[in-house]
Design a protein around this nucleic acid. Sequence first.
DNA 1: GATAAGTTGTTGCAAAATGCAAGTGCAATA
DNA 2: TATTGCACTTGCATTTTGCAACAACTTATC
Lengths: 138, 138
Amino acid sequence: MDKIRSDCPISCTLDVIGDKWSLLIIRDVMLRGKMSYSEFLNSEEKIATNILVARLAMLEEEGILAREVSPGNKSKYIYRLTQKGADLMPVIIELMDWGAKYNRNCPRKELGQKIKKDKAAVVRELAAVLREKVKGVS
Amino acid sequence: MDKIRSDCPISCTLDVIGDKWSLLIIRDVMLRGKMSYSEFLNSEEKIATNILVARLAMLEEEGILAREVSPGNKSKYIYRLTQKGADLMPVIIELMDWGAKYNRNCPRKELGQKIKKDKAAVVRELAAVLREKVKGVS
DNA sequence: GATAAGTTGTTGCAAAATGCAAGTGCAATA
DNA sequence: TATTGCACTTGCATTTTGCAACAACTTATC
């Protein structure tokens, strides 16, 4: 996960998050309010513990997630999006829209419907929400 | 590449194109006018032949690419985007924008600059271009 | 019509990533 | 002090990827 294949920006992005799990972790923290190892572990897709650890370390290393000790529980870590991580939001939205459009077993829920109706508005509003969340990290 | 992990649209999309190579092939045909096995093989990222064959078969199976015999050369195949494949364009654009923003070794070229200036316009214009290309397949 | 060159693969094997199950260390809680 | 919750680690089997060589089939060239 550390050697680059070319200087194409698409290729460079895939070098970092082009696997089956990274973007699901980012989805969890971006859209579902999840913040901890155990919450990610309990997601419906059932990521293995060693993969989760490796991905969290990589995402932190890449500056996409920021790790800090949980305020309420000192033996617990919480993960937040950095601005770099938050900027992946449009990618997530587009993946979601395409997936919902071409998979009948992926029903559009609230957010999916809203994206179908006015994608640009969703992106704008979510960017504002994330900006607030990210600000607290600094 | 055939079992789904959940009914989340993001997860479903990653089940199909969530690897390091599929989207690069789609980039080649979508943005670089490449259409054949040998052209994909010659891309700067140097995909292995067995991986390329497997991905082309998968993308055709998934209805993202359509294969046909080359008009000029009967021993040659060409691959075109279906509408389903063309609809991945916004994903490609967002990956490109993020990659260019956060990698100093990924200089923005013409398209990259245009995306930075007016992403929505690029998406709109490219959609029109692709609509024409896809139409010929029907 | 034999030879070469182009195009799309296949095959075998090594290396890396993933998946699974069990175990570990440590702080908070009872 | 015992127990529980949380964040990992480890070992091993399976799957995917990467690499290099080879193969079939078509078209161009001599």
